[in-house]
Design a protein around this nucleic acid. Sequence first.
RNA 1: CGGGGCGUAGCGCAGUUUGGCAGCGCACCAGCUUCGGGAGCUGGGGGUCGCCGGUUCGAAUCCGGCCGCCCCGACCA
Length: 576
Amino acid sequence: MRLTRYHMPTLKEKPAEAEIPSHQYLLRAGMIRKLASGIYSFLPLGWRVVKKIINIVREEMDRAGALEVFLPIVQPAELWQESGRWNVFGKELLRFKDRHQRDFCLGPTHEEVIVDLVRGEVRSYKQLPLNLYQIHTKFRDEARPRFGIIRAREFIMKDAYSFDKSWEDLEVSYQKMYEAYCRIFKRCGLDFVVVEAETGAIGGDVSHEFMVWADTGEDVIVFCEKCGYAANRERASFAFEKSPSEEAPKTPEKVHTPNVRTIEEVSSFLGVEPSRLLKSLVYRTSAGEFVLFLVPGDRELNEAKAARALGVEALEMALPHEVLEIAGASVGFVGPCNLKKRVKIVADRTVEGRVNFVSGANEDDYHVVNITPGRDFEVDLYADVVFAEEGDRCPNCGELLRFSRGIEVGHIFKLGTKYSSAMNATFLNEDGKEKPFIMGCYGIGVTRIAAAVVEQKHDENGIIWPITIAPFEVSLVATNMKNETVREIAENLYEAFVESGIEVLYDDRDERAGFKFKDADLVGIPIRVTVGERSAKQNKVEVKLRRSQDVEVLPVEKVLDRVMELRQMLYRELEP
RNA sequence: CGGGGCGUAGCGCAGUUUGGCAGCGCACCAGCUUCGGGAGCUGGGGGUCGCCGGUUCGAAUCCGGCCGCCCCGACCA
């Protein structure tokens, strides 16, 4: 491709809206443009990158035995009402009416549609296993889109759905996807880690996320360097050994603490370590029941863990008036003793066996000190309901856990029968019995991969694309188009590259060398071939990799072979 | 949804405090010079100053309302 015939609107200055490298460079390199908050257009160069990612994803999905389909983005409300998610999904689901006033939504994910499709087509266990996937636009009306195409409202996703006759078979389907995902991310040039993850609104029991290491990531990865344990902080467990307190339980005592509410305030007012306070939080479960959670003052309640411990779908903080009804005191003075209404009490496991805690007295402006679980109040359940913190130890091997940030590029779930049961999607098994499909679902953020790669592969001059997803393989720079020798060599090389099937972007613009180098570095094409005046006189050109400072000066006739060699080397590095 | 910031040419910004010709740099067009790390000079084109309303002889500037965008948090397959 000749640059004079191409559209590559690079920007010298950093756009005001962009904060992180991927957003800045994708805009500056002329790859994306914003249409509205969280909604982006892809320009020719950016779209070439996305298409290459799509091709890799498609090759690996096909290789894993999945079958490509194409499902509608506009989906009728009835399907979502049937699965129960029409009322659960919240504002992320963009809803609207057609001309007949019928409710529709834009698909944020496609479980409903795929289950509807498969239940009408598949009747027998002989047709299983089945794994259907698509690469398509998703729309999620995010509360706060951010970071360019990392968290966009409209984005391209690969989503796959497996249907099996048994849990054993699901395990096989899941493992195939796990391996396909590893191959995909390796080929895209990403340094990633697979972590145990929360399932969120998609549901199911087991899930893994594929995380790309990046300081700008929104997720926190908790991992162990010794044994390889890795989990999203939302899910991460940590080692805890119950050690009965040496202290003798003292007598509870009510103390006046006027307007002292937060952990910090109580801690400094009473001169007590935060770890001795019992943070008392009232929640309402999705089943409509109220629960009081007790966690040490220096720890944070993890709602996902808490919901799982109770076996409920979701938890919501109780409203101030509900707290008042249950505790008889306002927020800040709630505690487990003398609750006005008896509710279930769940304490974090780190509380068990310890004595002499401080908590709210369930009376405004009063706290109570020296309370001990089991004696002064009953705990209905001890469970792991808090986040892992710096300093906690690995649940597997006891090594100190490490914390790092990451970008989620893939997520795989064992769904089980959540959707097939709700939507009555069944098949006949070997015994002629009707059974719901055992499902899995598997997502990859295709456009997010492009951004994640830039986050990981860039320097102060721009992007450094892995060759597998680079918009072009070779950047051919003619330093001066007015110089006959330079132009002739460059034109001949261009023809040779094209004939050899090399994807080359030939900078044949009438610009100065420095200008072209800056653009080439910004856009990040992995191999650069430079035809300059001085070496051209000796019939030589320069070959350089974007990621390196080293320059090779070669006779013109050797350049094609050398470029083919480098290209092959770069692809080899990224083979799974 | 809570808090903060911003909105002036395609991009980056000044001008708003104290009302009085709508500006600068980059980019774009033409010409000349230049030519290995975002060139110089000369000339030129491009604006509902986010929108609506109000105050005023006069509003980018003051007042009211609305909209959009970004950041932090909450939320989030």
